[in-house]
Amino acid sequence: MASIISFTFREAVVDVEYKGYLIPKGWKVMPLFRNIHHNPEFFSEPQRFDPSRFEAAPKPNTFMPFGNGVHACPGNELAKLEALIFVHHLVTKFKWEVVGSKSGIQYGPFPLPQGGLPARFWKESSCPSQNMCP
């Protein structure tokens, strides 16, 4: 739903015409990744959380959570591996539930769950009481 990188700055290395506007060489431009990732031309229902939309690879330059090209995050593969390991252990070794969360995302400038994301975690074998654990 959100990328840690909401935007970046680049410099036009040549004159560029984009949708009838001239961007002169040397001007700074600010690509907004959040807008690209929520563009209905590329993703149906872009505001809905739907991991299945990535069962097929997205079109090039339509999903760039780690930037792209020579400016891509050098740690992107490590970050993806860490996230995969974290999620694996979270879903295979723990039970968990979101507690009193508000829906929505706040931007300022990075995307965060509105009001935080309070949650309870426990190992099934260490559940304090049957009444407290689903």
Rank of each mutant, 00 (worst) to 15 (best):
F66W: 12
G20R: 03
P113S: 08
Y18K: 09
F94W: 11
F86W: 05
K19R: 14
T62A: 08
A12K: 04
E41N: 08
A83E: 12
P51F: 07
M1C: 03
H38P: 03
F66E: 11
Y21G: 02
R48K: 13
K80G: 05
R10L: 10
P65Y: 01
G104V: 02
P40T: 02
T8N: 14
F9G: 03
F86H: 04
A119W: 02
P128S: 01
K123R: 13
A2Q: 09
E45V: 02
W122P: 06
V87L: 15
F63P: 07
S125D: 09
K59R: 15
R48D: 14
M132N: 10
P109C: 14
M64K: 01
N68Q: 12
H37M: 05
L117S: 07
S101H: 10
K28E: 09
E97Y: 00
N35M: 13
P134D: 10
H37E: 04
P58E: 06
C127L: 02
A72T: 14
G116W: 00
L22C: 06
G26A: 01
L90T: 03
N68P: 00
R120Q: 12
I36D: 02
G108E: 11
P74E: 07
V13H: 03
N35H: 08
P74V: 13
E82V: 02
Q130I: 07
E97K: 14
S101I: 03
S6W: 12
K59L: 15
C73F: 01
A119L: 14
V16E: 13
F94Y: 14
M1K: 03
L81R: 09
G100D: 15
V16T: 11
E77Q: 12
A57E: 15
H88M: 14
L78G: 04
R48T: 10
Q114W: 04
P60C: 10
K80D: 09
H88G: 10
I23G: 07
E77P: 00
S129C: 06
E17F: 00
F66P: 07
F33V: 02
N131Y: 13
I4R: 07
P58W: 14
L84G: 07
L32H: 06
V99P: 06
K59W: 05
E55P: 00
P60M: 12
G116I: 00
Y107M: 15
I105E: 11
P51Y: 13
F43W: 12
I105Y: 15
P40S: 00
P60D: 14
K93H: 13
K93A: 14
P24T: 01
P24K: 12
H71T: 04
E82S: 00
P74R: 01
K95P: 00
K19C: 11
L112F: 15
K93I: 09
R120I: 10
P40H: 03
I23Q: 04
Y21A: 09
Q114P: 01
V87C: 07
A12E: 01
D15K: 03
E97I: 00
I4Y: 05
